[in-house]
């Protein structure tokens, strides 16, 4: 019997190693898998490359990872916010590397990794600082920039419900990067409010099929 459910967030992240690349879902705090991140912090590993839309908000989630000095590099689209003080301090101290990627290119590069594409030509960023030094091509009269996929060792995402085969549904705008990160990482770990019996999720509305998910942890509704 295949059962991808894990008893605790700690057990689910127990093999994330120093130097790992880790995608973390969430747009701001919506969809941020706080309990998985707390478990990752508790593991004590560092030198991580983090892929997230932002670079932390307040004290939770990615902000806490940065505060604890665990992040070597962050790949994101929008690091600077009113409550990104832990990133700001690390960046100004030169202790964190930043790769700034336009948000749609970030999504497209993650999706390309999940879909097994070697690269993509995207119109976004053409002629700007963020395309400097990159290969470009004119296709059908429009200019494009060559961008490479973003793969990761792990993805930590948050969903509303999952089952023991790893099928997932999400809640409202907390969906954001979850479905594409699940496809792009070698090991995807989802924290969910509830693990439901097989068949309880309507197959017509499953957003992420279980093939993209290796581990599911029930966090419960109160804390999720």
């Amino acid at each position: 019997m295949i059962d991808k459910s894990f008893d605790s967030a700690g057990a689910a992240v127990a093999d994330i190693h120093d130097g790992a690349s880790v995608m973390i879902g969430g747009f701001g705090t919506a969809g941020m898998p706080d309990q998985l991140i707390d478990a990752l912090i508790a593991r004590g590993v560092g030198d991580l490359t983090i892929i997230n839309n932002n670079a932390g908000n307040g004290e939770q989630g990615v902000a806490a990872l940065i505060r604890e000095g665990r992040v070597k590099k962050i790949i994101c689209s929008f690091p600077r916010q009113s409550d990104s003080h832990h990133f700001d301090a690390a960046y100004r101290a030169g202790s964190i590397e930043l790769e700034l990627v336009p948000q749609g290119n970030l999504a497209a590069r993650i999706q390309a990794a999940g879909a097994g594409l070697g690269a993509i030509f995207t119109p976004t960023g053409y002629g700007t600082l963020l395309a400097e030094g990159k290969e470009t091509r004119e296709i059908g009269g429009r200019n494009y920039v060559l961008e490479y996929p973003i793969h990761a060792d792990f993805a930590l995402i948050k969903a509303q419900q999952g089952d023991r085969w790893g099928n997932l549904i999400y809640r409202k705008t907390a969906r954001n990067f979850g479905p594409i990160m699940a496809m792009a990482a070698r090991t995807t770990i989802a924290q969910v409010s509830d693990i439901v019996p097989l068949g309880a999720l309507d197959p017509e509305v499953i957003v992420t099929p279980g093939i993209f998910v290796q581990r599911v942890v029930e966090i419960g509704r109160e804390s999720a």
Partner: peptide, 21 residues
């Protein structure tokens, strides 16, 4: 998206995608 000032932390978000999309 960016004033180009040295020391400013750059952030782009979806601006480039929206502008040309």
């Amino acid at each position: 998206w960016h004033t180009g000032e040295s020391g400013a932390i750059p952030a782009v978000g979806g601006a480039m995608d929206l502008a040309i999309g």
